[in-house]
Design a protein around this nucleic acid. Structure first.
Lengths: 228, 228
DNA sequence: GATTAAATTCAACACGCGATGAGTTCCGTG
DNA sequence: CACGGAACTCATCGCGTGTTGAATTTAATC
């Protein structure tokens, strides 16, 4: 599950008195920490999880900092303003995905292509850190226009082009769109809405089902079985 | 810059220069407006548009009030806290949808069922006010756990049940999930990400394509042509 | 060992949010 | 015409956010 961290509250004792000016809240002393330097990466991981769990707007710098056991100012010091934190956490993982998706073998038949594509996509969606990055990107794309534009660009330039190149059917781009819609929609039902039974489906079965659907889109008469 | 700055005073400031009737910034005067009473509905419309455009978190009461040419307090006065505003704007339109979706004729063959379902869904997604409500619900479900739970409930109890009742195939619920994923995913690519060419597809074609896909899900071997 | 650089925290800022409560104007009823 | 209540605004509170600058501690360099 993605319920790794809680949104606003630090899980602790109930009945926090919330004294203003109380020193008991802060524990760490200022200044550089002794030992190895691992905070930078910890912030990135925490950011990835936070964006995946809450989306762009609702994920807070303060929450990320809390999860990384760090002061909020340090996040900003390392990665700049929030948008750059998002890019650093999500973008770097998201970029090489098109490569994986686009790795279609020329000359393979549609069924093979569909099966390959489906298992590759399921592998990406089911395992960290790509899962977190994809979920974060999806949640962010729905909330923020900037993220939506970014994701549209990725989808159009890479995924659609790659899929379109693997079929000789007309309306290749439309077919690629529908495949993308199926992938994204399934991920949404499975990981965000957590609708049963697709939320609990095991990976192999999910890959098989999606492979069948992708195969359909690659080969079908697009206007339905009743069309000319 | 700290010199000469006045510290923020909290409560207990008695020397407030109360100038009744003096408004430098505001234009509308307080009190009931003359003429007919149309503000209530205007707020609802503005709220629906705001939630559809920005999602639950990013849509603000102040923004809704501004769009309705009204004071923010009036929104709260009519519809209560923000969550209730959302329910009033989105929920009321969303509720009767299951009826439309569930209106499957018993005894119809899968192709007919698929076509009916597809055109009904497209009609809902393409025209106000259901379009705004659905978009708002989708955007909200991705951002807010409460909205996600609400949408899961709607999807599971109504749509899935209705679709499952219209086929005798095994795994009826899974098939319904996949149909839902296709619908939601397509709506996302079309209306949120605005990926081409599906974003510009005309309604009739969209309904035909989705009808074909739904027909596939209603009848296919779920584990793909190469499965088993 | 002294100096510079990097890591880290602290305190506070300015802003926008949702929410109140009190005040003002109009409508509907008697 | 009086009067209660509905519509409507104003001013403000308290909170959480992203961001900033200064202070402090350790590591790296010469």
């Amino acid at each position: 599950m993605t319920s790794g961290d809680q949104p606003p509250r630090r899980s602790g004792r109930p009945g926090d008195p919330r004294r203003p000016g109380r020193r008991a809240d802060h524990q760490r002393r200022p200044g550089r920490r002794p030992g190895a330097n691992e905070t930078r990466e910890a912030i990135l991981v925490a950011a990835r999880e936070a964006f995946a769990a809450h989306g762009y707007e609702k994920a807070t710098i303060r929450g990320i900092a809390r999860a990384a056991a760090v002061d909020p100012a340090l996040v900003h010091h390392f990665y700049g303003p929030k948008e750059d934190v998002f890019k650093a956490a999500v973008g770097d993982v998201l970029a090489p995905i098109a490569e994986v998706v686009g790795a279609t073998q020329p000359g393979a038949n549609p069924a093979q292509t569909a099966a390959r594509l489906a298992s590759a996509l399921v592998a990406l969606w089911e395992h960290e850190p790509t899962k977190g990055a994809l979920l974060g990107a999806l949640r962010a794309a729905v909330t923020s226009d900037t993220a939506a534009a970014l994701m549209r660009q990725i989808v159009e330039e890479h995924a659609v082009a790659a899929i379109a190149a693997s079929t000789e059917q007309p309306d290749a781009e439309l077919r690629a769109n529908l495949i993308g819609a199926t992938i994204v929609g399934t991920a949404l039902l499975r990981h965000v809405l957590e609708v049963e039974p697709v939320a609990s489906l095991d990976e192999r079965r999910l890959a098989a089902v999606l492979g069948g659907a992708i195969g359909y889109y690659l080969g079908a008469e697009l206007d339905g079985p009743g069309g000319a």
